[in-house]
Design a binder for these strands. Structure first.
Length: 261
DNA sequence: CTCGACTCCTGTTAGC
DNA sequence: TGCTAACAGGAGTCGA
């Protein structure tokens, strides 16, 4: 699934459209347009605009257009892929379909002189937003400092996993990345956030960062050391203990009952 | 305000 | 073999 690492791949792939003028918007799936946005409105405000920058905050991809133009927010849900000029930045996503069906195109931005940005999303959990409220997102997970992380977890009674996946707290972390980071840090996902000691917070910050960097280099959220064992009957890759499978923060969670405490 | 439960979506897969 | 039901999770909403 696309978490922040995959969105960053999309962002880099999409940078080639900077400087291009949008001539046509095709939004056949009204459900994919969020916060009251409609296809006619999207067309009206976007057509004729030139793309000036591609930014990312957490899992949100931001397409800036000329000074007085809007910013287009692209969300990819769990199965959304970005195609740039007909090419996919990522060919296959975990949990998505192996097939590649043009019927799954939810929105297309076509450019002057050819080429386009296209979201292809089988399960329709992504969406398009106009001028999204970026400030509602927490700091990007790659930029969060140890002190910020400490403060964000300090008073919360929610499980640390739920807190880390809350995009308004820290932006960019999804289910696979959080399970991997907590497994590496040796912290139980169900631990009440505010009970983490200073030492555990340091460890969490270190491993969260290392997980993002390392998995980014390996090629995505699904390349973690824990990934192959995220299944029923999986065992801890570190100590061979049968993994615990349960729901934490509303999501299927795998953890090692021996070394994650 | 905080947090958990519920809901949305649909292709894939496990199981009868 | 063919069908059904469970499953996957990002994000919004609602109620305690």
């Amino acid at each position: 699934m696309p978490e922040m690492l995959e969105i960053e791949v999309y962002r880099r792939a999409a940078e080639r459209v900077v400087g291009r003028r949008i001539t046509q918007v095709h939004a056949p799936d009204g459900w994919y347009l969020k916060e009251g946005l409609t296809a006619p409105v999207l067309e009206k405000v976007v057509e004729g605009r030139t793309v000036t920058a591609l930014r990312r905050r957490g899992k949100l991809l931001l397409v800036d257009t000329d000074e007085d133009g809007p910013t287009i927010g692209l969300r990819f849900g769990m199965t959304g892929r970005l195609l740039v000029d007909g090419r996919a930045g990522i060919e296959h996503l975990e949990y998505s379909s192996l097939r590649d069906n043009p019927e799954w195109d939810r929105v297309v931005f076509a450019f002057e002189g050819g080429g386009e940005l296209r979201i292809r999303d089988p399960r329709r959990l992504g969406g398009v937003l106009l001028d999204p409220a970026e400030e509602r997102l927490g700091p990007d997970a790659l930029s969060v400092t140890p002190a910020q992380l400490r403060d964000l977890l300090a008073t919360s009674r929610a499980p640390v996993k739920a807190r880390l996946m809350d995009q308004s707290v820290v932006a960019g972390i999804g289910n696979l990345l959080v399970d991997e980071a907590l497994w590496r840090a040796g912290i139980d996902p169900a631990r009440e956030s505010r009970t983490l000691t200073a030492n555990e917070l340091r460890r969490l910050h270190k491993h969260l960062r290392a997980t993002l960097v390392e998995l980014g280099e390996r090629g995505g959220s699904h390349t973690g050391d824990l990934q192959d064992e995220r299944r029923r009957d999986g065992v801890c890759p570190r100590d061979g203990t049968p993994l615990l499978r349960r729901t934490v923060g509303g999501r299927t969670t795998y953890s090692c009952p021996k070394h994650q405490v």
